[in-house]
Design a protein around this nucleic acid. Structure first.
Lengths: 186, 186
DNA sequence: GTCTATACACAGATAGAC
DNA sequence: GTCTATCTGTGTATAGAC
C-alpha cells in the first residue's frame, strides 16, 4: 500500500466515523504514519480535496458491495431484504468499518461547500441507480423503479442512521421486513 | 427574551444547521449579541452543556409540533400523510429553520460523547412515542404500533436527511405517498 | 518524493474588573 | 449578572532541507 493509499484509507475511516470537522489532519497523518508533507504533496488543496477524494472512494467501494449483494438473489424482494439484513450483520463489526453510509459527511457538507455537497449527491445517485436497474431487470416499469429506488435509498439511509445512533441493528432488521409490502403493492 | 434564551435559540439554530464541531462559541455569542461571560455564566460546563440544552429544547419544540399536526386528522393514514407533507412545506423556509431533524447533531455525538448520544436517543424516543400513541388510539395493537412507529420514525428521518442533502422536497412527498401501503397492510 | 519545523488563525476556556 | 482581555491548545497550511 503506497503513501497516497494509506492517507486515503485512514482519512476515509476517520471522516466517516467522526465527521469532517471533528477529524484533524494531524490525526490522519499520525494514524496513517505518513508525514504531513506527503499529504500536501498528494492533495495540494488540503483538507477539502482530501475529503472529496475519500467520499468518491467510499462511494465506489460501497457501489461494488451493493452490486455484489443484490446479484445474489434474482427475486428483487429477496435480494433487497437479504441486502439489508447483510448490512445489519456487517454493522456489528468494530467501529462500523463497513458501514454503508456517508450521511454524516453529507449532512456536514450541506452547509459548508456546494461542490462537496454535489460530490455526495453523485455518490447517492450511483447507489440509487443500482437499485433502479435491479428493479427494472426484475420487470418493474421505469416509472415504478424510479420511485421505488428512491424510497429504498431513503429507508436504507434512515435505518443505518437510526442504527448508528442507537447502536442497535433492530431498525435495519425491521426495515428489511418491510421490503415485501413496499415492493409487492405495485 | 432574556440572555439565556437568546444564547439558547441562537445556538440551537447554528448547531442544527452547521453541526456541533462547525459551530464556534464565538459565532454563537456574536450572532446572539451576548458576551462570552454570560454564556459561561449560564452554561458553566461550556460547549457540551450548551449543546445538550439545545438538543432538549429542539426535542420539546418539535414534540409539540408533531402532536399538533397529528391531532388535525383522526384517521392515522391521513394524519401521518399530512404531517409529512407539512414537513415538505416548512422545508422551503429560509435556512430550514423549522426542520424536524437533529440527525447531524445525533450522528456527530455518536463518536464523541456517550451522554450526548443518550440525550439524542431520549429525544427520538419522545417523538416515536407520539407516533405510537397515535397508532394505538387509532386501533392498532400495541405490538403493531411499536413496530410501525419505529418504521415511521426511520422513514421521516431518512426523507428529511435526503431532502436536506439534495435541497429538494421530492423525497418527503414520495415518502408521504407510501404511508397508506405502510399502514394498511396490517 | 519525503520529512520536519514552524507560521498563523481561531478554538474553547478563564480571570477578574465592573 | 455583565463584560472584555487574555491564556493555552490545536487546527490548517507552508517553507525549505534532504
Amino acid at each position: 500500500m503506497n503513501t497516497r493509499e494509506k492517507i486515503l484509507t485512514t482519512a476515509a475511516f476517520l471522516f466517516q466515523k467522526n465527521g469532517y470537522h471533528a477529524t484533524g489532519l494531524n490525526e490522519i497523518i499520525k494514524e496513517s504514519g505518513t508525514p504531513k508533507g506527503s499529504l500536501y504533496y498528494y492533495f495540494p488543496n488540503g483538507k477539502e480535496e482530501l475529503v472529496a477524494a475519500t467520499i468518491k472512494l467510499m462511494g465506489d467501494k460501497i457501489q461494488h458491495q451493493i452490486e455484489e449483494e443484490l446479484a445474489k438473489n434474482s427475486d428483487p424482494v429477496q435480494a433487497f431484504k437479504e441486502f439489508i439484513l447483510d448490512l445489519a450483520r456487517d454493522f456489528n463489526e468494530k467501529d462500523h468499518e463497513n458501514c454503508f453510509s456517508i450521511s454524516l459527511l453529507a449532512l456536514e457538507t450541506v452547509s459548508m461547500s456546494e461542490s462537496l455537497r454535489k460530490t455526495c449527491i453523485e455518490v447517492y445517485d450511483l447507489w440509487t441507480d443500482i437499485y433502479y436497474h435491479k428493479l427494472v431487470d426484475s420487470g418493474f416499469s421505469s416509472e415504478k423503479a424510479t420511485e421505488l429506488s428512491s424510497i429504498l435509498q431513503l429507508m436504507i439511509e434512515g435505518a443505518i442512521t437510526v442504527s448508528l445512533i442507537r447502536n442497535d441493528t433492530t431498525m435495519l432488521v425491521a426495515a428489511a421486513e418491510k421490503i415485501p409490502i413496499l415492493l409487492d403493492n405495485n
